[in-house]
Design a protein around this nucleic acid. Sequence first.
RNA 1: GCGGGAGUAGCUCAGCUGGAUAGAGCAGCGGUUUUCUAAACCGCAGGUCGUGGGUUCGAGUCCCACCUCCCGUGCCA
Length: 586
Amino acid sequence: MKWPFHIATHLDKTIQKAVLTLKEFDKEFTANVNPADPRFGEFQANGVLPFAKKRGRNPRELAIILVESLRNIFPETDLEMEIAGPGFINFHFKKDFYLDWLKHLQDQSSLKTAGTGPFRGKVVTMDFSSPNTAKQMHVGHIRSTVIGETLCRLLEFQGARTIRDNHVGDWGTQFGILIMAIRHFRMNLEADTPDALEQLEDIYRKGSALTREFPEQLEVARKELVKLQNGDEESLTLWDQINSISYKAFQEIYDRLGVHFDHVLGESFYRDKVEDVYRDLEKLGIAEQSEGALVVFHPEHPRFKKQPFIIRKSDGASNYATTDLATILYRIKEWSLDEIIYVTDGRQQDHFEQLFLTANKWFKQLPSIKKPILRHVWFGTILGEDGKAIKTRSGDPIKLKDLLTEAIDRARIIVEKKNPDLDTNECDKIARVVGLGAVKYADLSQNRTSDYTFSWEKMLSLEGNTAPYLLYAVVRIHSIFRKLSIRPGQGEENASSPESNEEKALARQLLLFPSALEQATTDLRPHFICTYLYELAGTFSTFYNANKVMVEDSRVRARRLLLCARTLTVLETGLKLLGIETLEKM
RNA sequence: GCGGGAGUAGCUCAGCUGGAUAGAGCAGCGGUUUUCUAAACCGCAGGUCGUGGGUUCGAGUCCCACCUCCCGUGCCA
């Protein structure tokens, strides 16, 4: 019997199948195989208990019957099965089994091959990052950008084709105020200066102040927006200049973060498609006029029967509801996709719920449309140390550019202190990888639906669940191979099975990687990967301190080298999924 | 009012369709280095899981009520 990469899934499926031959069970039974407490084995199946309850049977009796039938399927040489407590089934793999299984983890590409499967052939559009032009990206954009990128990598790793689409806000209300201000103050846009975007922001601030002081200017701004959206040439020229300035600044951030997009189709791209949306939705009786606006109510919904989804404002302008609808249709037609995932903050939950309801009603009446799965992956707010949404001392949003620069600067100070022998180039690289990695990891390691407290000290610490801690484990492994003048994967030919407690614990932890992958993908929550990697790095550190690798006994050395190489592969693969670069020295 | 989220150790957080004695890190206390990066490791201490009911072999997890905080709730995105 050859064991696959994903053991828990394999156990689950096999049990599910075996059960069909047993008269005491039926297809309502689910095995529910999960990683177990180390005291009990590697995996446990808890499904017998709820099933027995439902059928009014004795769970232990059922467990005995099930395990007996499994003995014919799973070779005793590989694992022990044990019934414990009220009816848990524990699976404990024997040490010789590990040696064979660890071959799956030989290198990153064999790992990817093994991991491919659950999403093979699926096409997924990831709608993420989505900054607004004319403004700098600020700290709030990091979550969408970093989480979206990681979700893409997770899905690709498991066989999906992803389409990264940056749905930039380049057609919204900010342009009304901006163009009004540019004209009011008779300003010239200078696109080539490095602080062009700062200047734009300044203009926006002035325009905004003006509308507060003179309410009639707000009316002027509204009209400017309508004028732009109606295709006024001069307005479009200004608009275009504003966007080029913005895109240049965005690209610098994306380059730093290692994020790329397959498409950057901003809201403006859909401007000639919104009329169809109005027409369709009105014609199909989905949208109606209300207080001068075109809106969608959902009578079957307790809240949205009263709370409108506004798709055309009373001044005739479109908004993001309109473009989001047009966007879905465009994506379906152009990319024939299976799923669209939107990564935005949690405050937009109502919007997306209404959007999905509306889109589904719309597409139901368009027979040629294959309705994709629509998912809103939302995240919480980043809080300052005061427990409120993070801001600068003056109350402005923190610019993402400044945040990333500060992360790298802070990392450099630490690197220089801890490892003064490094030359400048190495130091720069390490500071960049550690600093950016720390920021990304701080974000990804939190459950995305929670708010989290931003702390430089915590994210750059070598202790605890941080990027530097994981990178340090990677570096220590590289160091061993460097000392031996061999590459990871070499020197393990005579490897024997894990012996010491630390070796066994490490092998066991490696076995659980597929479960972490699955968990992260099912819920689209990257923090499961982080938690797993942190535990792996911890298990490795314990092993590293207790079991010297460079020992005389060649069999011991070979098996420890093998464990080191496999740990390295999983750590590096995991960090790559998180979009974090790794190092050989730090 | 309605909806979403949160409430777990002094602090920051995990806890996977209900499962075995609720786990980490920081902070506190005490140890480990002629040994592969001590940026590490080991140990001790620390919890009425917001409150009160309920469901059951079993509840941090599910149901009901309540308290506190954050967010959203017609023309921003």
